[in-house]
């Protein structure tokens, strides 16, 4: 298999660790914290991806998306609801004109172990049901076999099928084995039509980290420096606390700059982050932490 086409620059793991240590030592306080919390909230893809998802569960999640915290009307909504293709029409209907987008995982999520036909049908189902965004998975098996062209062609084919819908390409970094591989997979995705690159499915224990996100942001930056085109980023899985979310924003600010700090260019794939952000926001506004029971769980 031809792999030389995708030679990516090397990544130094120790250097990445140093960089992340600098980022997490930043002090994000007072006005910066409040702005960061609002920003983080607006960037959340509120997610439910369970075998047990039902019409009731998805509808309730959509209600939450529209009533995050009515006590503070200045707060933004989340960016999107992220569901399986079969739930897209339910979410679409429940969200109505709220402006919250619907993202669907597709292409034999989470393993990606299926044929291109099935993946295209999966994608088409989600789009026909009205999905605004498609979260596809790459074929990690093929990638690890060295068949980068296969992975690249698959991404390009799904991108073509997406039409106007924005395509997020999930690398499942926890299965790739090294930061060099993360960089290579990022470059393949970016050069073959990804609008977003996304870390993880959330279905394996090793989900998003600041380290892999840093490598992916560097890939985005190098592409921007070469072509002038912006690519968006979505870490997903394992981000449930505000403090960590703020570190992610700091990383984006320092690697890519303020231009990327909108929900058009950065998202969090998370299910429980929103409530922690609300808890922290309320603390900043009113003083004192409220019981978690004051924040709805849907």
């Amino acid at each position: 298999m031809q792999t030389s086409k995708y030679s990516s620059p090397p990544v130094d793991q120790v250097g990445i660790e140093d960089r992340i240590a600098r980022i997490t030592a930043r002090s994000i306080k007072s006005s910066m914290k409040v702005e960061g919390l609002k920003m983080a909230l607006s960037m959340i893809d509120l997610t439910t991806l369970e075998g047990a998802d039902t019409v009731g569960k998805v509808t309730q999640l959509c209600t939450k998306a529209q009533h995050l915290c009515d006590e503070f009307p200045e707060l933004p909504n989340v960016a999107a609801i992220c569901v399986y293709p079969s739930m897209v029409n339910v979410a679409k209907q429940a969200l109505g004109e709220s402006g919250v987008k619907v993202a669907a995982v597709a292409t034999a999520f989470p393993s990606g172990q299926s044929s291109l036909e099935v993946k295209l049908t999966d994608t088409k189902l989600a789009l026909d049901n009205g999905a605004d965004e498609i979260d596809m998975v790459i074929s990690r098996g093929k990638f690890l076999q060295g068949e980068c062209n296969f992975v690249a062609d698959e991404i390009a084919t799904i991108k073509e099928a997406c039409g106007k819908a924005r395509l997020k390409v999930i690398l499942e970094t926890g299965e790739l084995g090294s930061l060099d591989q993360v960089r290579k997979a990022s470059d393949i995705a970016i050069y073959n039509g990804a609008d977003f690159i996304k870390t993880s499915t959330g279905k394996i224990p090793k989900a998003a980290t600041l380290h892999v996100t840093c490598v992916m942001l560097e890939a985005i930056r190098d592409y921007y420096l070469t072509t002038g085109k912006m690519i968006a980023m979505k870490p997903a899985g394992g981000i449930s606390k505000s403090k960590l979310a703020l570190h992610y924003l700091m990383l984006v600010k320092e690697v890519l700059g303020d231009k990327w700090l909108t929900n058009e260019w950065f998202r969090f794939g998370a299910s429980s982050l929103a409530n922690d952000v609300l808890l922290q926001y309320r603390k900043a506004q009113v003083g004192g932490y409220q019981s978690p029971d004051y924040f709805s769980i849907d």
Partner: peptide, 15 residues
């Protein structure tokens, strides 16, 4: 509405 934020994620004094 999924609003776009203004870029106000700027350092506050942290002495």
């Amino acid at each position: 509405m999924a609003t776009k934020n203004k870029n106000t994620f700027e350092f506050a004094p942290a002495p």
